[in-house]
């Protein structure tokens, strides 16, 4: 919906003789009738589409969110968060493998570091994601 639609909408709303479309069955029955007439045309156009879609479908759908967030995690903007997270992962997994445990924080987890990294990545990916989604 562009800015012109907004104005037309406002105008329609202000004008007392504006057209109000009923959502009742009648309108749709008309649609159906039209559809039956246009079926032959639609079928032709539909015949072309599935071939293209099949070709597109062969590679599995990729989630744009994951893709953008991976990119964002590697970006310069998130490098401090990623650095801290990686360091924490190393520390905590190291403790699991029998390395000397930090006595002040024996049960450390990396949730906070994970939060910071995820926050940064999401923040950076959000506008790109919305541009990519329908």
């Amino acid at each position: 919906m562009g800015i012109f639609d907004t104005f037309t909408d406002m105008l329609e709303a202000a004008l007392p003789w504006g057209e109000a479309r009923a959502e009742a069955a009648e309108a749709e029955e008309k649609d159906d009738e039209k559809d039956s007439g246009e079926d032959s045309k639609e079928e032709e156009s539909k015949d072309d589409e599935p071939e293209e879609e099949e070709e597109e479908d062969e590679p599995e759908t990729e989630d744009p969110k994951e893709k953008f967030e991976e990119e964002c995690k590697e970006s310069k903007q998130c490098s401090p968060a990623k650095h801290h997270f990686d360091e924490c992962v190393e520390r905590v997994t190291g403790a699991d493998e029998g390395k000397p445990v930090d006595k002040k924080h024996p049960n450390e987890d990396c949730v906070e570091e994970f939060f910071h990294l995820a926050h940064c990545a999401n923040q950076c990916a959000a506008p790109k994601l919305w541009a990519a989604l329908k």
């Binding site: 969110k65 992962v89 905590v92 699991d96 049960n107 987890d109 990396c110 949730v111 994970f114 995820a118």
Partner: peptide
């Protein structure tokens, strides 16, 4: 965020 936010695996130590 909740629907798409499940990480592959939880951060270590959780």
């Amino acid at each position: 965020s909740l629907l798409t936010g499940y990480p592959e695996e939880p951060p270590p130590g959780v």
